[in-house]
Amino acid sequence: MYQKNVGAYYHLGLSQAMVSYSIHEVTEALNQRALLEKYIKFPKTPIEREIISKRFVELFGLPGVIGAIDGGTQVAIIRPVEDEEAYLNRKLYHSINVMAVSSIHFQI
């Protein structure tokens, strides 16, 4: 449904097919082995998962958790010259949506 809505939004000038193609291309790019190995780390053993789970309990009282997803936030940006309306959020300022997935171990 999301693809159809975005594709139907005439200000963007994208068809549903182009939205689908773009999602596929971005997903393929993000799934390149070099990117996955550098930026995405999952606990590989039961011991690693147990250690991480215990830290979530110690710090936040959340049992059975080995990772967290941020619900997202709007980061304000300077109004873009092109496609300005695509960056106007529901609170009527220009922004991009940022989401994060993290373990208990924060690495940069």
Rank of each mutant, 00 (worst) to 15 (best):
I51E: 10
G13A: 03
E84Y: 02
I108V: 15
R79V: 13
I96M: 08
S103W: 00
V65W: 00
L88A: 06
I40V: 15
A8N: 15
E85C: 13
N31R: 11
Y87V: 08
A86P: 09
E85Q: 14
Y87E: 03
L62C: 08
D70A: 14
P46W: 03
L35S: 04
Y87K: 07
H24R: 15
L14E: 02
P46H: 08
E48S: 04
R49I: 06
V26I: 15
G7D: 04
H94Q: 06
T73P: 03
V19T: 06
F60Q: 06
G64S: 02
V75L: 10
S103M: 06
L92R: 14
T27Y: 07
A86H: 06
Y21A: 14
H24Q: 15
M1C: 09
L14C: 08
L59S: 06
V65F: 01
I51L: 12
Y10H: 15
V81M: 12
S15P: 01
A76H: 08
I69Q: 01
Y9C: 12
P80R: 02
A86Y: 02
G13M: 03
V98A: 07
N89F: 05
H24Y: 10
H24V: 10
G71Y: 03
Q3A: 14
K38Q: 11
I40L: 12
K91R: 12
V65G: 00
Y2L: 15
L12C: 07
L59Q: 05
T27G: 10
L92V: 06
E37D: 08
A29L: 13
G13R: 07
V19S: 05
I47T: 13
Y39M: 05
D83A: 14
S22Y: 05
I96S: 02
A8Q: 12
S53N: 04
I51T: 10
P63M: 00
P43E: 07
Q74S: 11
L36D: 00
S20A: 11
Q107S: 13
V19F: 05
G72H: 05
